[in-house]
Structures are given as C-alpha cells and as structure tokens.
C-alpha cells in the first residue's frame, strides 16, 4: 500500500468520474496504477461501485402498467394525432 497520502486523496477525488467512465484515458491509467498498489483505495472504489450497482438495480425495479402502449395509441387517436 502506498504511503503517499496526496496520491490517495487525488485518487479518491477522481472516484466518481472513474466509476462513470468520464475520466480521460491518461487519468484512468493513473487511477488504475494507484489502485494496483493501494488496497485501501481499491476497497473504497469497490465499495462505491457496488453501491452504485445496488442503487441502479433497486431504482430501476418499477412495475410498468399493462397496455401502456394501447392506452397511448387510444389517446393519440382521440386527439387526431
């Protein structure tokens, strides 16, 4: 594990962008190089990634009403669209 605290802080500062694949290729390489040598940051990143996956999974679990398409078609038709 690296003892370079600044590097850990800089890495965690890029956590959100890294998980969203919004970093430049050069920044991504820097972050991953740090994660290869820093168990603490790696665990933080894994934790945050798992939290985001859980949130997506749960929030997207929304039952869709039956015949949504049919009702829309009826409304479009009734309004002459």
């Amino acid at each position: 594990m690296t003892l370079d605290r600044y590097t850990c802080l800089e890495t965690v500062r890029r956590l959100d962008d890294y998980l969203d694949r919004e970093l430049s290729p050069a920044e991504t390489t820097e972050v991953e190089r740090h994660l290869q040598t820093c168990e603490g940051c790696l665990r933080r990143f894994q934790f945050e990634g798992a939290v985001l996956d859980d949130l997506r999974l749960k929030l997207r679990r929304v039952p869709v009403p039956e015949n949504l398409e049919g009702r829309l078609r009826a409304i479009l038709s009734s309004r002459g669209v």
């Binding site: 665990r43 894994q46 934790f47 990634g49 939290v51 859980d54 949130l55 749960k58």
Partner: peptide, 8 residues
C-alpha cells in the same frame, strides 16, 4: 463481500 452492504 462489497455487495453485501447497506444498500443491498
């Protein structure tokens, strides 16, 4: 297991 967290 990181996935066995609070949110899950």
């Amino acid at each position: 297991d990181p996935s066995a967290g609070v949110v899950s």
